[in-house]
Amino acid sequence: MNYKVIALLVVCIALAAAAGCTGLPIGTFVKTQSSQDVARVSSDSNGYSLLQEKTVSAGSSAAPAVAPVPTSISSGTGGTGIDTKIIKTADVTLEVRDVTGTVDSLKGLAIAQGGYLSSTTIQKNYNNQLTGTVIIRIPQDGFDNAIAGVKALGTVKSISTSGQDVTEEYVDLQAQKTSYTNQLAQYNVIMKQSTKVEDIIKVQEQIDQVQTELDRLNGRLNYLNNRIDISTITVYLQEPEPVGGQTGHDFIATINEGISGFFGMIDTIIILLFTFLPLIILGAIGYGVYRWHKGKKAVEPATREERK
């Protein structure tokens, strides 16, 4: 009897050791059925698809299942190998003598720093003076030199700089990208091993979803990389105010304003005439009726006297 108990214990230990050596990750399992292959896919709390179960035909070897992968990395760069990611921007208001010439100088400054002129706008204000807005993009390592060069082009009226730390978002996006890339690779392996049409359709749906997320993440990462690598400097240009706060007397402008006022008055009279025209017509008709009625009364007494 004791030999039987010992033999039973040895068999149990051997089975447990064999199960521990299968190497299946926690949260995934493989079972064998004799008639069908079924892939069941679920999602974790963050919405990242994880394959939890795959069944294979009897007699076939078990295909590797998709194990859950980390969906994010905690904030901070410790252990990630990613440098701090900063988006640098600046706004500078300059008073300059020649707005057009300064725009050309800013373009040359941007090119000298390895950047480029992104956009420019020049217009006149209410004092008939030129103003301008220029946006230049500069590599981040030349940001400080570019600011110094901009300040040297005129009188600084205001300046502000900012650095937006996007390291946490960048690290998280990289982690999500790695997660989806791993899932996509494993779904492709499962796709090659699938034989039933319904299984192929289900796996293809998951592949499409993962690929869509990868495209979205790559787009966001490309945007952040562009904003991080190339800093933005917006320069507002204005000419100095004339002495006395306004320009001198312009006789020609006064004549033009007088002519404009004259034609404006004529326009007003024409508008009033056509506005009150119905009333004028009704008044004329009423006055005509009144005159006719009054003339008729004056004729009647004269006729009576002639009869007498």
Rank of each mutant, 00 (worst) to 15 (best):
M1P: 13
I6P: 01
C12W: 10
A14F: 13
L24S: 09
P25G: 07
G27L: 10
F29L: 08
T32W: 01
Q36W: 05
D37W: 00
A39S: 12
V41F: 15
V41M: 13
S61R: 09
A62E: 06
P64V: 15
P64E: 11
V69N: 05
P70H: 09
D83T: 12
R97K: 11
V103K: 07
V103G: 03
I111A: 03
Y116V: 00
L117T: 13
S119I: 01
S119Q: 07
N127I: 12
L130H: 06
T131R: 15
G132T: 04
P139S: 09
P139G: 03
Q140N: 15
G142E: 15
A146M: 07
I147D: 04
A148V: 09
A152M: 12
L153P: 03
G154H: 02
G154I: 00
V156E: 02
S158A: 08
S160L: 08
T161I: 07
D165C: 01
T167G: 00
V171C: 06
Q176Y: 03
K177P: 01
T181P: 05
N182S: 06
N182H: 06
N182F: 02
Q183D: 06
L184S: 08
V189Q: 12
K192N: 15
K196A: 14
V197D: 11
E198R: 08
I201P: 03
V203A: 00
E205A: 14
Q206E: 15
E213W: 07
D215H: 00
N218Q: 15
L221T: 04
L224D: 06
N226V: 09
T234N: 08
L237W: 02
Q238A: 12
E241F: 14
G244M: 02
G245N: 02
G248Q: 08
E257R: 15
S260D: 10
F262T: 10
D267H: 06
T268Q: 14
L272F: 10
P278E: 01
G288Y: 10
G288L: 15
R291W: 10
W292I: 12
G295W: 06
K296V: 08
A298H: 10
